[in-house]
Amino acid sequence: MKIDRAHLDKIAHLARLEFDEKDAEKMMQDMTAIVDWVEKLKEVNTDGVEPLTTMSYETNMFREDEVKDHLSHERALLNAPKKDNDYFRVPKVIE
């Protein structure tokens, strides 16, 4: 499958990434190669095989419904680039 410019722009938007215009051609080639490589797997006959959703055989790893000590408010906000006494502050998301 060929990754074209529309694909590239969509993926960049979904990942909120910007790229240098002059790298666009190279990226499309690389991504096409990756997708082609993965598509090789389609050659395997998977009739009657349930899709694999996990790499582990573990099931039912539960917690009991108990409240435990957690992070203090101050430490929770500590690494925030912008904050006030109560909240994380982010650029306005609604006009």
Binding site: E66, H70, A76
Partner: peptide, 27 residues
């Protein structure tokens, strides 16, 4: 109306002061 959150043991109580029921998983 569980006591704790779905994937960690923070309280899921309504009406706490902002950003008090948060641990590293909630964050």
């Amino acid at each position: 109306s569980t006591r704790s959150k779905i994937f960690n043991s923070d309280s899921s109580l309504f009406g706490s002061a902002p950003n008090h029921n948060v641990d590293v998983i909630s964050l």
